[in-house]
Design a protein around this nucleic acid. Structure first.
Lengths: 325, 325
DNA sequence: AAAGTTTACTCAATCGTTTTACCTCATAAG
DNA sequence: CTTATGAGGTAAAACGATTGAGTAAACTTT
C-alpha cells in the first residue's frame, strides 16, 4: 500500500508538505495541492490510521462493554450506540463479558492499550474499582457509578411508579414483580423500589420474585414464572424488568390458561422487539434507549474535549400502553 | 503512561532488551528478566498496542459489517462472532450499514486503513466489486461470493426442502412463502427455490409473497402478512424466511382468528429468540449460527497464516419442530 | 593457545504519520 | 537599499514499539 513517502516521491515534494496538504494546515500553493491530489489518486493512497492514531495517542475507537449481545435491550442499545459513534466519526469496539466479572477489567485493559477514545460500560459487576487508572473516560449505562467519569441511566424509579399506578388503576390488588437480580447492585433495582412504593401507598399486595444471573444470561425465565404463578394463583398483575420476561410471562399464562389482560395484567420494561411481536402486545415502560446511547457518546466526546459534564444523567421514561393491561 | 523507554531507564537496560524480554525472544539472563519484570510492575507498564500494530502492519481487529444489529439473527451472529474473535485473540470492530449500500465500501475502507486482520461481511448489497483492492481477506456470510476470499452460508436450499416436506407431511395443500427480498440477490433466495421445488414435486400450490427491503429494516411485516392472508383465505401453510416474520405471522393469525397449528401450519427460519418466546413456539429451520461464526473467524485466521481455504463453505441446517406445525 | 560458539546485550533502522523549527524567496514598508 | 513580513516549503524529531546487525565477553573445542 502506498505511503505518504511514495506520494511525496511521486510528486517531488517533501513528506511533510504532503502531510500538511492532507490535513489542510499551514500555507499551501494551489499548484502543490493539485499535484499532491493527483499523485494520491494515481497511487490509490489512503492514510494509515494506525500511524495517525499512534501519533495522536488516540485511536478514535470507543470500547463498548456489555454483558449480553443477543438480549433485545442490549442489541438495541448496541445498535443505537453504533449509530451515534458512526455519526460522530468514532469506531465501535464491541466486547461481551457474558456477565463474567473478570472479563470486565480485561476488556478495559484492551481498550486502554489500544488507546480507545473512551469506554461505555453496561456491565453489572462491581469488580473494576480502578476506572481512573486506565486514563480513559468511562461512561456507564444503567450501572452504578462508583469510579466512572459519568453515568447514564433512565428514571427507573419513576418507571416503577408508572407500572404500579397503571396496575392499580386497572384494578389489580395483588401483584408480582419479576426480574431483579440480587447478585448485582444496579440502577435497575430502583424499578422494584418505585413499584413497591406505589403498592404500599395504594395498599396493593406486592410480591418480589427475584431471578438469578443465570436466567438473565440464558434469557430463560419460564420455570420461575410458572412456579410463581402456581404459588400465587390469586395474583392479578405482573411487573417485569424486561420485555423478554414479559414475553415469557405471556407464554406461561397461555399454558396455565390465565387470560391476559382479562385475568392478569402484564407490564414489562424496555420497549424492545419482544414487546410488539407477541399477542397480546406488551404494555411496557419505554426506555429512551436511542437518547441514552446518543448521550453516552456525546458525553465521551465532551469529556475528551475537556468540557465539564454532569456526573449523573437520568433520562425520563414513559408508559406505552398496549394490549396486556 | 509508561513506555518501554521508561522501563529501560528504570532498570538500566536498553529498550531493545526490554522489548526482547516482553516478547520472549533471543537470549535473556534471569537476572535481567527479573529486573525488567519488577520495573514493569513498578511503573504499571502495558505495551501500546497501536505501536505494535503499526509495526506489524496489522491491528488484530476483525471488522464485522452487518445490515442490521437488532434483528435477532444478526444479534445472535454478532454475539457468536464476538465470542470466536475473543477466543482467538482478535478484537471486534462492528459496523451497521442499515442496508445503505454506500456504507459498505466506506466501512471496508475504514477497516483497511486501520489494518484490520480481516473483514466479515454480512451485507446483501452488490456494491463492492473491489474486495481484493483492500488487501484484506474478506469472508462473506450469507452473501453472494463475488470477489471475496471465501464465503460461509448455510444450506438454504435444503432448508427450503425440509420446510416443504414437513408442510406436505402435515397435510398442507396450499402454502405461502414470505420474506424473500427481490432487490438483493443472496443465498437466502435459495430457501424459496428449495421450497418451491418440493411444492412442485408434491403438487402443493405455492405462492411467493416477496417483501421489500424496508420491511426487513423495520422488522415490520404485519401489513403484508395480513393482506396476503386475506387474499388467500384457503392457504393452510406458511414458510417464512425468518423467525421475526414467523412471530408476526402468529400475531396476524391470532387477529384473524386463524388457529395455529390447527388451521394453519407455520415454519420459519433461523431459530433465534422469537422462535421460542411466542405461543405457539415456532417450528423453524435451524441455522448453525454459532458454527458459521466460528468458521468465518477461523477461515480468516487460516488465510492470514497463508493456508489455502475452501472458497465456499456450506453448513448443514436442521429442522426444529415445535408447536406451530 | 588459537579458533569457534554461545550468551547477553546494545545500536540504529523501521513502521507511517504529524509537527516543530528552520530555511528561502518574494513583496511591501521604511 | 535595507529590513520586516509572510508565503511556501523542507529536514528531522517525535509517537512506541520490533528487529536485524553488531559487539563483547564467557565458554567450548581441538
Amino acid at each position: 500500500m502506498a505511503t505518504l513517502k511514495d506520494v511525496a516521491a511521486e510528486c517531488g515534494l517533501a513528506v511533510s508538505t504532503v502531510s500538511r496538504i492532507l490535513n489542510n494546515r499551514g500555507y499551501i500553493s494551489d499548484e502543490a495541492r493539485q499535484k499532491v491530489n493527483d499523485a494520491m489518486r494515481r497511487l490509490n493512497y489512503y492514510p494509515n490510521e494506525l500511524a495517525r492514531s499512534l501519533h495522536r495517542n488516540n485511536s478514535g475507537m470507543i470500547g463498548l462493554i456489555v454483558p449480553h449481545i443477543m438480549h433485545p435491550f442490549f442489541s438495541k442499545l448496541i445498535s443505537c450506540i453504533e449509530e451515534s459513534c458512526c455519526r460522530r466519526g468514532y469506531r465501535l469496539l464491541l466486547f461481551n463479558t457474558q456477565s463474567v466479572e473478570d472479563k470486565e477489567a480485561e476488556f478495559m485493559q484492551i481498550c486502554s492499550r489500544n488507546r480507545a477514545a473512551g469506554i461505555i460500560m453496561c456491565t453489572g459487576g462491581l469488580s473494576v474499582k480502578q476506572f481512573k487508572d486506565f486514563g480513559i473516560p468511562v461512561i456507564t449505562i444503567e450501572r452504578s457509578i462508583e469510579y466512572g467519569t459519568a453515568s447514564v441511566e433512565c428514571d427507573n424509579e419513576t418507571g416503577g411508579h408508572l407500572a404500579g399506578e397503571l396496575l392499580w388503576k386497572k384494578g389489580c390488588r395483588k401483584v408480582l414483580h419479576f426480574g431483579s437480580i440480587d447478585s448485582y447492585r444496579m440502577p435497575a433495582d430502583q424499578r422494584y423500589l418505585g413499584f413497591a412504593e406505589v403498592c404500599a401507598a395504594r395498599g396493593m399486595e406486592c410480591i418480589r420474585i427475584p431471578s438469578n444471573a443465570e436466567a438473565f444470561q440464558k434469557m430463560e425465565y419460564r420455570e420461575e414464572i410458572e412456579s410463581a404463578l402456581l404459588r400465587y394463583p390469586d395474583a392479578d398483575g405482573i411487573f417485569a424488568n424486561s420485555d423478554v420476561i414479559g414475553a415469557q410471562i405471556l407464554q406461561v399464562c397461555r399454558k396455565l390458561e390465565i387470560s391476559v389482560p382479562d385475568r392478569m395484567k402484564v407490564i414489562s420494561f424496555d420497549d424492545t422487539l419482544p414487546a410488539i411481536n407477541t399477542t397480546p402486545r406488551l404494555t411496557t415502560v419505554t426506555q429512551p434507549i436511542s437518547e441514552m446511547a446518543e448521550l453516552a457518546v456525546r458525553l465521551l466526546e465532551d469529556v475528551t474535549q475537556g468540557r465539564i459534564v454532569p456526573v449523573k444523567n437520568v433520562l425520563p421514561v414513559s408508559l406505552t400502553e398496549r394490549e396486556s393491561t
